[in-house]
Amino acid sequence: MNILDTIIERKKQEILDSKSKISLQQLKESEFFGRTTYSLKETIASKSGIIAEFKRQSPSKGIINNQVSTLEVVSEYEKFGASAVSILTDQGFFGGSFDDILSVRKSVNSPILRKDFMIDEYQFFEAKSMGADVILLIAASLSPNQVSEFTELAHQLDLEVLLEIHTEEELLHINKNIDFVGINNRNLKDFKVDLQHSVNLKNQLPYDILSIAESGIYSEQDFKFLKEKGFDGFLMGEYFMKNENPGNKFSEFIFNVTI
């Protein structure tokens, strides 16, 4: 199995464990379940366009930064102009947790993307209960029908949907209700990065859909290249998180790409 298959198999067991501990009704009765969500569609153009990510580790890079607090980092992301923040909630492979979102929700007035491997309806109710505003659907782990059904459920819960693709075949997963299409510059099966491949895919998207360049953006030059190619937003994490102070690195980056 490739790494994505391995993650999905483990995720199935995690979901079973979660269901045995917290019922759907308990999720619906949680503090944040009834809150009005923030819209990334509204902030993507009005700020930097960057969805700045909090990520402690990854399967390809190992430990990136596990010495900083979620609240400190995402507060600075917001302060310096992030359109949204992305927070990993996968524990086994990315070192995240639900508490990473719960701990910042009251302090952050920006959209929060729950970054995880969404394969079960239960996870959407989890996302709503922890205060997320946007969820990620990964085409490589879902069928087009699942993407359609999960998008409908997400919208019923007032959550926006970012669909991530990496191949031409995955263009078939796009439907008219998707809020954003993210093109992953990194292949989740072998972790190779190819920015030009992402540009080629973007040119095949429906003309009226918002596009997000995801992952593998390692420099100001990478960012400017993708922006010039017409991407509406940019999901970036490692570039900031590998710094001792991710917030300062984000502030510096924003200054340099906007002068």
Results as ranks from 00 to 15, higher is better:
235 L>P: 11
135 I>N: 02
185 N>L: 12
177 N>E: 12
233 G>W: 07
187 N>L: 12
107 S>A: 12
185 N>F: 06
144 P>T: 01
125 F>L: 12
106 K>S: 10
106 K>V: 00
104 V>A: 12
208 D>M: 02
168 E>W: 00
116 D>F: 03
137 L>R: 04
225 F>P: 07
110 S>F: 01
103 S>A: 15
227 K>Y: 05
222 D>P: 07
185 N>V: 09
180 F>C: 11
194 D>M: 12
121 E>C: 04
141 S>A: 15
140 A>L: 03
107 S>D: 13
233 G>L: 12
191 F>P: 14
112 I>P: 00
150 F>N: 03
167 T>S: 15
139 A>T: 04
221 Q>Y: 09
121 E>A: 12
156 Q>T: 11
198 S>I: 06
194 D>W: 03
173 H>V: 02
147 V>F: 01
145 N>C: 00
216 G>Y: 07
137 L>S: 08
224 K>S: 09
173 H>S: 15
130 M>F: 11
99 D>I: 03
226 L>E: 05
152 E>V: 06
213 A>D: 05
133 D>W: 01
100 D>R: 04
211 S>K: 07
184 N>W: 10
102 L>F: 03
201 L>V: 06
236 M>D: 06
138 I>N: 02
154 A>N: 01
155 H>R: 06
129 S>H: 00
188 L>Y: 07
214 E>N: 08
116 D>I: 10
220 E>N: 07
223 F>M: 13
160 E>A: 05
214 E>D: 11
193 V>E: 09
101 I>C: 04
148 S>H: 04
178 I>G: 02
144 P>S: 04
171 L>M: 06
125 F>S: 06
201 L>C: 11
222 D>H: 14
119 I>K: 13
203 N>H: 10
123 Q>P: 09
164 E>C: 08
233 G>Q: 08
108 V>I: 15
184 N>K: 12
108 V>H: 01
185 N>T: 10
100 D>H: 13
220 E>R: 08
149 E>T: 06
105 R>L: 06
183 I>L: 03
235 L>I: 14
149 E>R: 10
146 Q>K: 14
138 I>D: 01
231 F>I: 14
233 G>P: 09
151 T>K: 07
154 A>W: 00
119 I>H: 10
157 L>R: 02
199 V>N: 09
143 S>M: 00
197 H>C: 05
196 Q>F: 08
119 I>P: 03
225 F>I: 06
214 E>F: 10
183 I>P: 03
137 L>N: 04
118 M>D: 02
99 D>F: 13
104 V>F: 06
204 Q>L: 15
203 N>R: 14
151 T>L: 05
231 F>G: 08
165 I>K: 01
97 S>C: 14
167 T>H: 05
115 K>W: 05
192 K>R: 15
182 G>V: 02
174 I>M: 04
191 F>K: 13
211 S>N: 08
214 E>T: 12
116 D>V: 09
106 K>P: 00
119 I>C: 11
183 I>H: 02
213 A>I: 06
152 E>K: 14
